[in-house]
Design a protein around this nucleic acid. Structure first.
Length: 597
RNA sequence: GGGGCUGUAGCUCAGUUUGGUUAGAGUGCCGGUCUGUCACACCGGAGGCCGCGGGUUCGAGUCCCGUCAGCCCCGCCA
């Protein structure tokens, strides 16, 4: 490995292989920066120590040519040492070089000068092999490997067993859209790719596996974001006869182990805060607790103000809540407009504000405020308050969305480097538009011990034994204790609008499993890609996945998906409805990118 | 499904606001000089469907409409 060569290696004769990173031609003398995954080493080529044939070869070398070099590791002349380079004290004096493979001029540079921008995402994905040769990407993928290895070792040490579950599975009626796979030998029938191994891991508990885990690939055919890929990897696990607290301890240990690998600060145990309390204080189910600012309830103080907006909100059963910003007087009108925009995007009709000055104040609320009102809110001169009024389902998301941007606008950075959090006791159901019930997490969450009686009578008030792991405002994963009794599971599916027949048809295999003596069990699934992204500090999930898809769910390198010919479709008992005429150009499956218009 | 940003030389970007000679720079590439460089330096050169299609205009990289691609966001993601 070239990157590890040091002064201690001086005098040794070695044979090294790598890529031509850069080449400097000084006329009679050449310097070649030889690169492999470990780093870069300077190879010097000169007539006094290099064979003539190799000297001639050096003249014609280009970037990314693949080279084998034999020679002696030597200290460089003192004035020619490069302290910025890990290997900068030494070089290889090439005696003999062999060209292992020629590279065409690279479409995107592997070497990049300090101030130059990265090539566009489009080209990076299209020419992925070149992009992956960059040290940053090499480092990301290697660290990912080390994290996965640590997951396996850690969980195996706890007695968890990795079991593979099917990739060809049964389409599910709930949740995300499935990627479907037509069956050739069963006309008109389809498999689905798994959205997660959820049901299989529960069945493994029924099967007595006791402690299961899997580094599992999952597939969801939904529109993408910077933190969402159509196929992604979960650290999926499940255990029998456990309480949530068991799982919290294991996961905190796992995160600490991963943190040691990645150099991330992990201080366990993590705070465990019920969903209701988190929403009340931070307005989000995944708050970034590196910032401690909390939402306050100011209903009592402000409901008496002669301000119709506030009075109407309270009369309608809502509350008046807000954020107290110390030093918030420094927010410009533009800042405040920006924050109102954030609140509106989060669904609020608007955002009220008031700044207190030495005398009086300013902002939409100022003319209703008196000294005592400022005092009651805790506002001192120079402070500001951001206020929202209405039902909690509107004000919480709005204030939650504004919380961190408001602090950032005041130039405040995070108060700590890392903030871990368990959000517990999520409600089992939430209301969809139109009043239908939907599962907050998924339909297999076991009711909270104190709420089991509510499941029939007041499903919306029923808390589940469900929890999310949050790191710096990013949801790392979520889990729950599952229903192990078929009757409870049926009740929940019924609340979700499934008929008895549908339940049997779609979830019969699960209920059958549960009925056969399934132990109480629970588990969690962590987003592996997100964990790696956060731990390596990558700006996008695409930077921790070797061959990711674009925002439009295309693979640019291979050029997938592609149209199939009518003949190929016929074998699968499929017929084309959309674009394409069946005359598919099968020659164009190429490396150059999307093969079809 | 909707909104926003971007698309000019192999790559990174100016030029588009206010339409007007031959569309520029850096880097890479090709040729030359150079024996201690390390973003080597210096000299010379090639390289453009200004994403694509249509329109307005005497004239479009620049204005208008459509479309494609990449990115970001809303919906969606149990």
């Amino acid at each position: 490995m070239v990157g590890g060569i040091r002064g201690a290696d001086a005098g040794s004769n070695l044979r090294l292989c790598g890529w031509v990173h850069r080449r400097r031609d000084l006329g009679g003398l050449f310097f070649i920066d030889l690169r492999d995954r470990s780093g870069v080493l300077q190879v010097s080529v000169g007539p006094d120590w290099t064979e003539a044939e190799s000297l001639a070869l050096a003249r014609g070398l280009g970037a990314e040519d693949v080279l084998e070099v034999e020679g002696e590791i030597s200290f460089r002349p003192p004035e020619a040492r490069n302290p910025e380079m890990a290997t900068g004290e030494v070089e290889m004096k090439a005696v003999r070089m062999r060209l292992l493979n020629r590279a065409v001029t690279p479409a995107i540079p592997v070497f990049r000068s300090p101030e130059e921008e990265l090539p566009s995402e489009d080209l990076r994905l299209r020419h992925r092999v070149l992009d992956l040769r960059r040290q940053e990407m090499q480092r990301n993928l290697r660290l990912r490997h080390e994290l996965v290895l640590e997951v396996r070792n850690y969980l195996s040490g706890l007695g968890f067993v990795e079991v593979e579950t099917p990739i060809l599975t049964k389409p599910t009626p709930e949740g995300a859209r499935d990627y479907l796979v037509p069956s050739r030998n069963h006309p008109g029938e389809f498999f689905a790719l798994p959205q997660s191994p959820q049901l299989y891991k529960q069945l493994l508990m029924a099967a007595g596996m006791d402690r299961y885990f899997q580094i599992a690939r999952c597939f969801r055919d939904e529109d993408l974001r910077a933190d969402r890929q159509p196929e992604f990897t979960q650290i999926d696990l499940e255990a029998s006869f456990i309480q949530p607290a068991d799982l919290f301890g294991w996961m905190e240990g796992l995160m600490a182990a991963l943190g040691r690998v990645a150099g991330v600060d992990v201080q366990a145990p993590f705070p465990r805060i019920p969903y209701a309390e988190i929403m009340e204080s931070y307005g989000s189910d995944r708050p970034d607790l590196r910032y401690s600012l909390r939402i306050q309830d100011w209903t009592r103080v402000l409901e008496g103000l002669e301000f119709r907006v506030l009075q109407a909100a309270v009369a309608g059963g809502g509350r008046i809540r807000g954020l107290l910003l110390e030093g918030g007087g420094g927010l410009s009108r533009k800042d405040l407009e920006g924050l109102e925009g954030v609140a509106k995007k989060a669904g609020a009709p608007g955002l009220l504000w008031v700044k207190r000055a030495e005398e009086g104040g300013s902002g939409p609320l100022a003319r209703f405020m008196e000294e005592v009102t400022y005092e009651a809110l805790g506002l001192r001169p120079g402070d500001a308050a951001l206020v929202a009024a209405g039902p909690d389902r509107v004000t919480s998301p709005a204030l939650g969305a504004v919380r961190v941007p408001a602090l950032r606008a005041l130039g405040r950075g995070p108060e700590r480097g890392a903030a871990w959090l368990w959000v517990t006791d999520f409600p089992i159901f939430e209301v969809e538009e139109g009043g239908r019930l939907a599962a907050t997490h998924h339909p297999f969450v076991h009711p909270h011990a104190e709420d089991e009686g509510l499941l029939e009578t007041d499903p919306l008030a029923t808390r589940g034994q469900a929890y999310d792991l949050v790191y710096n405002g990013v949801e790392f994963g979520s889990g729950s204790v599952r229903n192990h009794r078929p009757e409870v599971q049926r009740t929940i599916l019924r609340h979700l609008g499934l008929s008895h027949g549908e339940i049997d048809r779609k979830f019969g295999f699960l209920l059958e499993g549960l009925a056969s003596g399934t132990p109480p069990h629970g588990g969690i699934a962590l987003g592996m890609d997100r964990v790696v992204k956060e731990f390596v500090g990558a700006p996008s999930l695409r930077d921790v996945i070797a061959f990711p898809k674009t925002t439009a769910a295309r693979a640019l390198f291979e050029g997938a998906p592609i149209l199939l010919s009518d003949e190929e479709l016929r074998e699968l008992h499929l017929r084309r409805l959309g674009p394409g005429d069946g005359s598919v150009d099968t020659e164009d499956g190429g490396i150059q990118g999307p093969g079809t218009p």
